[in-house]
C-alpha cells in the first residue's frame, strides 16, 4: 500500500483514536481476490480523510461460519474474545468489508456485551457520496456499461440493505439492470451458512452456477457484488461459463475506487 494503514495498537500507542474501525474480515485479510477489495476500501477511507484503523493480527474470525454450522460454543468463544478486545479499545463505530461480519457484529454481539454502530462498506460509501466526498470523477469508465448487482443475503434479506449498493451504481453513468431474482427475492450465491467451507450437497447443479446463469442472461459487462464469499462464488461461476474475458465480477468498493481514480 502507498500509505500506512495503522492498527489500533499503534494508534493507542500514539495517543490517537480513530473515527472508525475497519473490520477487514478473514476473507478480506487472506483471500487474494478479496485482498484487492480490502485495499480499495482502505484507499477510499484514506482518500476522504477518514481517520481509521484496523485491528491487524488482533482481529479474529467473528464466529459466523461456526455459528451457522451449529457450533455455538466456538462462536461464543470467538465473539467474547472479540468483544473484549473491541471494548478494551473503546470502539464506537465499525465498518466491515463483509456482510457476514457486518451481520454478526451488528445483530449477535450486542447480547454478549458488544454494542457498536456497525455499517457495511457499501453504506459507508453511499454516505460519502451523499456528503459529496466521493465524486466519481473517473465515472466515464463505467459510462454505458451494463451492470447487474447481486444482493448478498446477509446484506439484503438479513439486514434490509438494498438501496445503498444500488445508489452507488446509479451515481455512475452505467446501465443498472436487475436480475429477476433481486432484492427480497434475491438468490443466494451458495456460500452462506458455512457452505463456503464445504462441498455442496448433491443436486442438479451448484447454486452459484444457477445464479451466474441468471446474471449472464442479461449480458452484463460487470456483475457487482458486496461480499467476498459472493465474489468467490460468482467469479467461479463466470469461469465455469468461460466468460471471464467478457464479464468482470467487481465489488462495489472496487467500482467506487475506479470511479474516483483511486485504482
Amino acid at each position: 500500500m502507498e500509505f500506512k494503514v495503522p492498527t489500533m495498537a499503534q494508534m493507542i500507542a500514539d495517543g490517537e483514536t480513530p473515527e472508525i474501525l475497519f473490520w477487514v474480515g478473514c476473507a478480506g485479510s487472506f483471500d487474494e481476490r478479496a485482498q484487492k477489495i480490502t485495499k480499495d476500501i482502505a484507499k477510499i477511507l484514506h482518500h476522504v480523510g477518514l481517520k481509521f484503523a484496523i485491528l491487524g493480527t488482533e482481529e479474529s474470525c467473528t464466529g459466523d461460519p461456526a455459528k451457522r454450522a451449529g457450533n455455538e460454543f466456538l462462536f461464543q468463544m470467538q465473539a467474547m474474545a472479540n468483544i473484549e478486545l473491541l471494548n478494551a479499545y473503546d470502539i464506537k463505530k465499525i465498518v466491515t468489508g463483509c456482510p457476514h461480519c457486518f451481520n454478526t457484529i451488528k445483530n449477535e454481539y450486542p447480547e454478549l456485551g458488544g454494542n457498536y454502530e456497525v455499517i457495511h462498506h457499501t453504506q459507508l460509501i453511499q454516505g460519502l457520496i451523499d456528503e459529496g466526498k466521493l465524486k466519481a470523477s473517473n465515472g466515464e469508465f463505467f459510462k454505458g456499461k451494463k451492470i447487474t448487482y447481486h444482493d448478498p443475503c446477509y446484506l439484503g434479506r438479513a439486514n434490509g440493505v438494498y438501496e445503498a449498493p444500488r445508489e452507488i451504481l446509479q451515481q455512475l453513468d452505467a446501465d443498472l439492470v436487475e436480475m429477476k431474482r433481486c432484492k427480497t427475492n434475491g438468490l443466494c450465491c451458495g456460500a452462506g451458512g458455512a457452505q463456503m467451507f464445504k462441498e455442496p450437497e448433491k443436486g442438479d447443479k451448484d447454486i452459484n452456477i444457477e445464479r451466474v446463469e441468471e446474471a449472464l442472461s442479461l449480458s452484463p459487462n460487470i456483475i457487482a457484488a458486496g461480499c467476498p464469499f459472493c465474489m468467490t462464488m460468482l467469479s467461479d461461476g463466470v469461469k465455469h461459463f468461460e466468460k471471464e474475458n467478457e464479464v468482470q465480477v467487481l465489488d462495489l468498493a472496487e467500482i467506487t475506487a475506479k470511479a474516483n481514480g483511486l485504482s
Binding site: 451457522r68 443475503c153 434479506r157 434475491g186 451458512g193 450437497e201
Partner: peptide, 8 residues
C-alpha cells in the same frame, strides 16, 4: 447440510 441460511 444443504441450507445456506439465506433466509429466502
Amino acid at each position: 447440510w444443504a441450507c445456506t441460511t439465506c433466509n429466502a
